[in-house]
């Protein structure tokens, strides 16, 4: 009868050949109060299993909503940074070129003005020479 069946089930249980429903039957059987003394030793085992199933995960998990959005955000930030860098390099190059041109222009202007200065100074001296020539002419004419 009942007890006989439980003993058989226990035997099967220890050989791990019981089905899940049979194990449930054992668990309910051992959860009751009156268990024959020769089977009492099995009770804690099954009681523990039913009890262990009751254990709950109580810790609150912070929901990481930001994780996904932040990752996307970082991705786009890197794209933007690269774009900015490229533009920066491009315009930087352009600016440098412009500056070089300006510099060359101003240097040339300086050189030219130097030349012009010296040249005009030369012509001034030549003007003196002209004066000399004029005077010579005057002297010649008066004689």
């Amino acid at each position: 009868m009942e007890l006989d069946r439980i003993e058989k089930l226990l035997e099967k249980y220890l050989n791990a050949s019981t089905s899940i429903t049979e194990e449930k039957e054992l668990r309910t059987y051992f959860s009751q109060e009156s268990i024959p003394t020769h089977l009492e030793q099995y009770a804690p085992m099954f009681q523990y299993f039913s009890m262990a199933k009751e254990e709950r995960f109580t810790k609150q998990v912070p929901i990481p909503i930001t994780v996904r959005t932040r990752r996307v955000y970082f991705k786009w930030v890197s794209v933007a940074a690269v774009a900015v860098l490229m533009f920066g390099i491009y315009f930087g190059k352009e600016y440098q070129k412009q500056k070089e041109i300006d510099y060359a222009y101003s240097e040339t202007k300086k050189a030219l003005s130097l030349l012009a200065d010296n040249f005009s100074r030369g012509t001034e001296k030549v003007a003196y020479l002209n004066e000399f020539e004029n005077t010579k002419q005057k002297i010649y004419n008066s004689n």
Partner: peptide, 12 residues
């Protein structure tokens, strides 16, 4: 099955 049987027997 073998592992389970062994475990159950050990516990008992």
């Amino acid at each position: 099955r073998v592992t389970l049987s062994r475990a159950r027997k050990t516990v008992r």
